Amino acid sequence: MESITKNRQSRDTLLAMVERAYGADRVPTGDGWVDELGHGWFNVAYRIRLRDGAEVVLKIAPAPQVEVLTYERGAMSIELATLELLRTRTSVPVPVVDFADRSRELCDADYFFMPYVDADNLGIVLASLSAAERDAYMEQVGAANREINSLRGTAFGPLAGPGDPSWRRVFTGMVEDILRDGERRGVDIGWSYDTVRATLAEHADSLDEVTEPRLVEWDLWESNVMVRDGKVVCVIDHERAFYGDPLIEAGFTGTQLAAFGDSTAFMRGYGHAELTATQRVRRDLYGLYLMLVMVIETVYRGHTDTKQYDWARPHLDAAMGTLGRTRR
């Protein structure tokens, strides 16, 4: 996916980064030692073969002059903090961070190295799998997601704070942030921004049921899951984590928005019962938030085609419909 947030670097800069991380004796020589991994949507990522043959991945945050969505500010710091939490406090397989540099001396943004995971991306191979294979993987994803959600926070909100004891205030603040992002750039979401605000306010009481902050990934889609020989071997891309309601997780999205697939296997692996009436309302709100992000981010990414926008706009209408809003 092409995006102006991808902070590509020159060959010489990449070599300097490798030397700082691994030492001069492991700096690659010749040609063919670097390839860009193109399926990511936000950070640029390179697959690099070191001089001794070991393969690593380098992720680089967007350049500071590139405007990102409000919730994406400091995303790489969030990812590094989440990786440390998951590595030390869960059994969920995540990448080891070999080296992280926030000095901005070699590059104008934060970056880190991790080992390359020799496995298939579930999002890429999903269509080639049998229904039984897909369900088996999604059950494993559900179980891993539940373990992630088992980590408790002291307050709702960003990992680095400030926190808030009210999930309603935090989530409505998240929605307000994305709405302001859209208004700032004049993004056509197909609805009055104030109508969206009013819709959220009408159903915000459902958020008060959530009283315990849990670590949520929010971005645990199939494309962030690496698989091999029938097993989930690594979960990647953790830059959107925060303390919130586990029901906001990506795996539950299909319960309310059919375009995101069948959530049955994920919920079975997670061990989640059928949603209650109040939980369904919350899921509707979370689906609305997701679709707002997917529409509005297309302008911030500088997409060269309208494919994502054209797909997401009708699904934003559908999300509004689940909350009782229809076009006149």
Rank of each mutant, 00 (worst) to 15 (best):
M1C: 13
E2L: 13
I4D: 07
Q9S: 08
D12C: 00
L14P: 02
V18A: 11
D25Y: 05
L37Y: 01
F42E: 01
N43L: 02
A45H: 09
L50S: 05
R51K: 08
E55N: 11
V56E: 15
V56I: 15
L85K: 10
D98V: 02
D101F: 12
R102T: 11
E105K: 05
P115I: 03
V117F: 01
A119C: 01
I124L: 09
I124H: 08
V125Q: 10
L126N: 05
L129R: 13
A132D: 15
M138Y: 14
Q140S: 03
V141E: 04
V141Q: 05
G142V: 07
A144H: 11
N149R: 00
G153P: 05
G157V: 08
P158I: 00
A160V: 04
P165W: 04
S166Q: 00
S166G: 02
F171T: 04
M174V: 05
E176T: 06
G190Q: 12
W191Y: 14
T195D: 07
V196L: 05
H203V: 01
D208A: 06
T211I: 12
P213S: 07
L215R: 09
R228G: 12
V232M: 10
A241F: 04
F242R: 12
Y243P: 02
D245I: 01
P246C: 09
T253M: 11
G261C: 13
T264L: 07
F266Q: 06
G269V: 11
A273V: 09
A273P: 15
V281M: 05
Y286R: 03
G287Q: 06
M291W: 00
V299E: 15
H303G: 09
T304I: 13
K307R: 15
W311D: 14
A318M: 12
L323E: 08
R325F: 03
R328H: 15
